[in-house]
C-alpha cells in the first residue's frame, strides 16, 4: 500500500508536470537573483554560494508543501486514507517520499549547475549535491507535519512557513556548513554524518507526528 501511495502521487505529478517545473524554476530564479542584488564579484559569490543555494532549496521545498495534503483533503481521498487498514504513518511516509521525489530530487540535480554559476570548485559541487541529497528528504518529512497541521486553514500557506522554517534551521546550518567546511579545507564528514542522523531521526518521528496532526485536522 506504501508503494501504491508513492505510485499514485508520482502518476499525479506526471499528469501535472507544470507544478513540478514551477518549484524547480522558483529555485533557479531565486538563486540567480543574488548576483544581481549583491554584485557579480566572484570571490564574494563563491563564499555565499552554499548559503544561497540552501536557503533557496528551503524556500522551494516549503512552497510546494501546501499541495502535499490539500488536494487529497479537498477531494476526500484523505478521509479514505484515514480509513485505510494500513497505518496512517506509513501512508504519510509514502506521501512525504513522493513529495521528495517530485520536488527534492530535481533540486538536487539542478544544484551543481547553479553552483557552477557561482564558480564553486569541483569538490564543493560534489559536497553540495550530497548535502542536498541528505537534507532535502528531511525538509519534506518535517514539512509534512506543518502541512498536516495547517490543513484547510485560512492563510495556511504563510502559516506553514512560520511553523516549519525554524525547524529547518539545523538542516540549513549543517547543509551549507558542509560545503563551507569543504571549501575551507577542514573536512565535511562530520556535517554530512549529522545530516544523515537528522534524516534517520525524522524518518522515524516525522511520519508519526504528521499522522497525528492529520487526525487532529480531519476531526
Amino acid at each position: 500500500m506504501f508503494f501504491w501511495v508513492i505510485q499514485r502521487d508520482l502518476l499525479l505529478a506526471i499528469r501535472r508536470r507544470s507544478d513540478v517545473l514551477t518549484t524547480l524554476f522558483f529555485f533557479v530564479i531565486v538563486v540567480s537573483l543574488f548576483p544581481l542584488s549583491v554584485g557579480p564579484e566572484m570571490n564574494m559569490l563563491r563564499t555565499m554560494a552554499p548559503g544561497i543555494v540552501w536557503v533557496a532549496a528551503l524556500l522551494a521545498s516549503m512552497l510546494s508543501l501546501g499541495r502535499l495534503f490539500s488536494n487529497d483533503y479537498m477531494d476526500g481521498t484523505l478521509e479514505q486514507m484515514l480509513l485505510s487498514p494500513q497505518s496512517l504513518s506509513v501512508l504519510v511516509l509514502g506521501k512525504a517520499l513522493a513529495h521528495w521525489l517530485v520536488t527534492g530530487v530535481p533540486l538536487v540535480l539542478m544544484a551543481p549547475i547553479l553552483g557552477i554559476q557561482y564558480d564553486l570548485p569541483m569538490d564543493a559541487l560534489f559536497v553540495l549535491t550530497i548535502s542536498l541529497l541528505l537534507g532535502t528528504p528531511v525538509l519534506s518529512l518535517i514539512g509534512a507535519i506543518g502541512a498536516a497541521l495547517t490543513l484547510g486553514l485560512r492563510g495556511g500557506g504563510v502559516l506553514i512557513s512560520l511553523l516549519v522554517l525554524p525547524l529547518y534551521i539545523p538542516v540549513l546550518i549543517f547543509g551549507s556548513g558542509a560545503v563551507e567546511a569543504n571549501m575551507a579545507g577542514v573536512g565535511h564528514d562530520a556535517h554530512l554524518s549529522l545530516l544523515g542522523a537528522f534524516l534517520l531521526v525524522s524518518l522515524v518521528f516525522a511520519p508519526w507526528a504528521a499522522a497525528s496532526s492529520l487526525r487532529v485536522s480531519m476531526e
Binding site: L149, T150, L153, R154, L159, L162, P166
Partner: peptide, 8 residues
C-alpha cells in the same frame, strides 16, 4: 509559530 497556529 505556536501562537499563530492556535490563532488561525
Amino acid at each position: 509559530g505556536f501562537m499563530s497556529l492556535q490563532a488561525a
